[in-house]
Amino acid sequence: MDNFTVGVVVFPGSNCDRDVSWALEGCLDIRTKYLWHESSDLSDVDAIVLPGGFSYGDYLRCGAIARFSPLINALDDFVKSGRRVLGICNGFQILTESGFLPGALTANKNLNFICDDVELDIVSSKGGWFNDGGEKQTIKLPIAHGEGRYHCDSDTLKKLVDDELIALRYKNNPNGSSFDIAGITNEKGNVLGLMPHPERACDETIGGTDGLFTLKSLILK
């Protein structure tokens, strides 16, 4: 485990990259490496985080331009190899825009940029991203987004439910997301996208540690 390295992707406009790196290194003693979006060499990282922010200024749509970066092009083989990818907030938007996860993230129902702590139900243990413990559990994580309303068609929603791909649901839906969805995984479970920020909940002094488990699970095989 000593050499396990998490790549933290930096796009122009990413602003949670250093938070993620700090949480992994400072709170969990997991080595990180920043990956500039123009890099396509992912050979020396074992897992990848797409952090929050406003990649490419959110031009056109959130995550739409980031999808065409060399790094995202290289991500396909990385995901197929079974290594883990965590997309947080803007990272989740990038994962849906690039087709790694289904659906899309659109403007919050009330048009507010919402910055708050939210209660979340852990729905699925697929991928082992959350401490499931065999029972339904609730965690509290911060959210900070203007475009976090998850949307998908009814066939996709049925598939998400049937295949247990819904990872997290809001207890009190803050943004109008379909089916209260806050986070989903791919079928294999090695890709997780979520709007809440686990890296902002890794130390009691800043309000909680419910995000630690998710970041720590990056090192799972």
Binding site: A107, L111, R149, H151, D153
Partner: peptide
């Protein structure tokens, strides 16, 4: 255009 089935909060405002 947003599809007819997709809520348009900016349009509503």
């Amino acid at each position: 255009r947003l599809r007819p089935s997709v809520l348009d909060p900016a349009g509503e405002a």
